[in-house]
């Protein structure tokens, strides 16, 4: 279990609180000590959950975002709508932990359960606000590779796009979750599976993409966001991590925000929602 810090020690970085939508209140059931200890997975899930605005339509995706959607629903975004590419639409969180979007608890009590065309047509026509993605590589302009990596050891074949390219192409914005390592954050992806900002400002428009682009990359060390020019910058570092550690582990000269802050720790309500759902910590330990 990673021990990433506590409410009491903001370290070298300033704490962001004014822009956080999360109330750092004490939970009636989690003690202050319990709340002060959280895993990296929990921090990433809480950060992902905060990207979801109340009432937004979200393409949920696989793995950690499955929980982020549940956490958002149970905390600050009770009116968010979840779309899953197997054909499920949910306005309530699945009643128990799921490992894939097609697990029976994600079907039970769904708002609608039909086919991929039903949800993909909503995505295609611009009615999806946000999508979550994972990737093996994310580059300076937020382009994603989940297809293949060619390196000194030869070819590494990855599972492929799934729906990631579709979500990156067609949602109004997308958020990536990623392990922070130099080889995972190259200057340029070796294979552009899912389009971010291409080579910079205006690229998406030039190639004909109707909208969208990356809003954030939530890594195991930090959160990157994107400027008007389409390039990523360091927006916040996780508690206990300093900015230099992040830039040293990024494959290009990462710009740093003048307002660099500390990623807000998960609040009590978020931790409670995560732990009530992922009881054994499969996704978040």
């Amino acid at each position: 279990m990673f021990e990433l810090g506590s409410f009491g020690s903001a370290g070298q970085t300033r704490r962001l609180s004014s822009t956080s939508s999360i109330a750092m209140c004490q939970s009636p059931t989690l003690s202050a000590e319990t709340v002060s200890r959280y895993t990296l997975g929990e921090l990433m899930v809480a950060s992902a959950a905060r990207e979801i605005g109340d009432g937004e339509v979200v393409f949920v995706g696989m793995r950690l975002p499955l929980i982020a959607f549940v956490v958002a629903k149970k905390t600050h975004a009770p009116n968010a709508v979840g779309l899953f590419e197997n054909g499920v639409i949910r306005t309530t969180p699945a009643p128990e932990l799921i490992y894939t979007m097609a697990d029976p608890p994600n079907i039970l009590g769904a708002t609608e359960c039909l086919d991929m065309k039903g949800v993909m047509s909503l995505l295609h026509s611009g009615r999806v606000d946000l999508g979550f993605l994972g990737a093996a590589e994310v580059d300076r302009f937020g382009n994603l590779n989940s297809t293949e990596v060619r390196g000194p050891q030869g070819l590494t074949r990855l599972p492929g796009s799934g729906g990631a390219c579709d979500i990156a192409s067609l949602a109004h914005r997308f958020v990536v979750l990623l392990e922070h390592a130099k080889q995972r954050l190259p200057e340029r992806v070796s294979f552009l599976t899912s389009p971010g900002n291409g080579d910079g400002h205006d690229w998406r428009k030039r190639v004909g993409l109707p909208r969208g682009g990356p809003a954030a990359v939530i890594t195991t060390k930090a959160v990157l966001r994107f400027g008007e020019d389409g390039e990523a910058y360091l927006a916040s570092v996780h508690p206990g991590v300093d900015g230099e550690e992040v830039t040293a582990n990024t494959g290009w000269k990462l710009r740093v925000s003048e307002n660099l802050v500390s990623t807000p720790a998960p609040g009590a309500a978020e931790l409670q929602a995560i732990r009530a759902y992922d009881k054994e910590g499969f996704w978040t330990k």
Partner: peptide
């Protein structure tokens, strides 16, 4: 598959514009 089901040679889309796939 939908194009195959409909018996048309292709269907158009905006997804994957700019993608290496």
């Amino acid at each position: 598959l939908e194009a195959g089901a409909m018996g048309v040679p292709f269907l158009p889309t905006r997804t994957a514009l700019g993608s290496d796939v």
